[in-house]
Design a protein around this nucleic acid. Structure first.
Lengths: 105, 105
DNA sequence: CGGCATCCCCCACGATACTG
DNA sequence: CAGTATCGTGGGGGATGCCG
């Protein structure tokens, strides 16, 4: 499970989806997750969908519109991720300090 | 930060150190973390020490004994990790189901 | 005992190009 | 627009061997 969360973009995408009121389009996610490639976006979303964390809805128009949203399972994951994110933000500075002190030797 | 946690053995080692009453020796950790190689154990511990999450104490005997323990920062990380672990255990089955259903198509 | 050093492999990820 | 296909790369991780 930590492997799943550990993916480079997973946490960011879950956060984006969680903070949106409704569904989010592929292109919106691409804009929101700065630096992500189309490939990794599609791949990560697919993996999240596979795990039942995200739903995918296609509007059969031309060109198509694809909408993503968290499932209830996905939202429950977000609540766990919030804890980790909060911890990280709170202690990031301390870790940086420790790292510099360690490297000075 | 998620990269740090995402390391294959980090979470397991933090858990081992957290559940021990006192310091833990290198070889004890090696036994506790089934499947870890000496290289990854040393490397992960070094990285944790660098980040100020773990202390390292060497008894200058022959052969040497090296003891590891969580710092207070490390213990605070463990409380965050517990949340994720709990989530994972609670929903592992649901995810497996979703995965199988998805793959069946 | 507790590590480094070395070699090797795999795959997550990136860049680019193509398509319904 | 929202993907697939293809190719190339870095580095995380395993196996083995040596050493104070």
């Amino acid at each position: 499970m930590l492997d799943r969360i550990g993916g480079k973009w997973t946490s960011m995408l879950v956060k984006l989806l969680a903070s949106a009121p409704d569904e989010v389009r592929f292109s919106e996610l691409k804009r929101g997750a700065t630096g992500i490639s189309q490939k990794m976006l599609a791949q990560t979303l697919r993996s999240l969908e596979r795990d039942g964390l995200v739903t995918r809805r296609v509007e059969p128009t031309v060109p198509p519109r694809v909408h993503y949203a968290l499932t209830s399972l996905g939202r429950s994951l977000e609540t766990a991720l919030v804890v980790v994110r909060t911890w990280a933000e709170a202690h990031m500075a301390a870790i940086d300090d420790a790292r510099r002190a360690f490297d000075r030797r």
